[in-house]
Write a protein that binds this DNA or RNA. Structure first.
Lengths: 207, 207
DNA sequence: GCTGAAACCGACCGGACAGTCGGTAGGTGA
DNA sequence: TCACCTACCGACTGTCCGGTCGGTTTCAGC
């Protein structure tokens, strides 16, 4: 009994976690097909046989990894949904939480869109649902409140939430990330464009 | 001399065109790796050997197909760039031209983003450059004019053009496409959001 | 220190698939 | 009608890679 009464991870759990971490780094760097199981095993200091002792298949490993991460994100962004304040403030908080994530975790969000076509059936559905719960649905909730309270013009909250997500994805792209320097600049760009648009102010209103 | 002095396609050109057309349909429906060369050949009523008589490799076929299409789009959208009128009108024309394309041609635009990671080196660069010339750069040109003429607030034209592209991609997604019915509704949504934002009008200004 | 089970190893298997190659068909010019 | 060339055929090959399986190591409990 090496664990006594603590929650120290067992050797097995530690190995599984090492494999997931290795997989994360590799999947962020290359797409699903280009990451070979041998590469993951080597990066995690395990052999392929060892890897398959913990995960039933490559797909299972990938989905496990994503589900873990998406559940963390769901909890994180849930704070902004639960927060009080204006729609703009709450969207701002959610976006800031997102922008301030470590690079690797932030990049993981792209993977759903990038790799989703390589799956099908039940695993694909689990992935899509976890993603929607973590991001679009929570943003949609905030936007729905904004519409209800008259802060946003009436419209389809879901389409608006996808539009918002799309804008956030733009600012974390290579070029935009460089042009807009600080996190605050990213945040201001997204919020200004989403709430006020790109048109010049008609007259005499501060930006 | 079966051609006399006309420009009738030769048998060879007709076969190559049939192969490209078949490839287009299949690549729109599934991603690069999932489309097998045998499938393309069968759909084009040619054997694999025949296909490889016309194209050096699967990658070469894919890139040829995309380059053809992107060059057409570059010409099409060039009309909006050359047109006179406000920035909003010109962006509107470009977007309308895009939205009114046949489904398959419109969907092809997604493929660059979807499959770009599966290539590398020279072929990848050719693809990216053709895409940028066809879409983002032309939109950027119109947006730059808008900023210069005071119609748009000062900002980085390239980031704005990517934001615009992102919004257009949102409205052609499955759900948004259904919610917004007509092409006009798609167009209004994109232009309103991009120019004026999603916030409710402060007071007494028509939408 | 013995035992059984879980963790881990790594050579091997089998299917999938891009690309090849020796050959045939059909049309064209002399 | 003969020679030749391009278009086209389809069985085959080489390779890559996810997954397997018989074995070895590690370790907890007795």
């Amino acid at each position: 009994m090496s664990q006594h009464l603590t929650d120290l991870p067992t050797r097995s759990q530690a190995t599984a976690a090492r494999i997931v971490a290795a997989a994360r780094g590799l999947f962020v760097a290359s797409n699903y097909a280009d990451v070979k199981v041998d590469m993951i095993a080597r990066a995690a200091q395990v052999t392929k046989g060892g890897l398959y002792h913990h995960f039933a298949s490559k797909e299972n490993l990938y989905v496990s990894m994503m589900l873990d991460d998406l559940d963390n994100k769901r909890r994180l962004f849930g704070q902004a949904v639960a927060a009080t304040g204006s729609c703009r403030d709450r969207l701002g908080r959610l976006t800031r939480d997102f922008l301030e994530l470590p690079d690797e975790e932030r990049e993981l969000t792209r993977l759903v869109r990038r790799d989703i076509n390589t799956f099908s059936g039940a695993e694909r559905d689990r992935l899509v649902r976890a993603y929607q719960k973590a991001l679009p649905e929570q943003i949609e909730a905030i936007i729905s409140d904004g519409i209800r309270d008259g802060e946003l013009a009436p419209g389809d909250a879901r389409v608006l939430s996808w539009s918002f997500v799309a804008l956030v994805e733009v600012v974390i792209g290579r070029y935009a990330d460089r042009v807009l320097g600080s996190t605050d600049a990213h945040l201001d760009y997204v919020l200004d464009l989403f709430f006020n648009g790109a048109a010049a102010e008609p007259t005499g209103r501060t930006v």
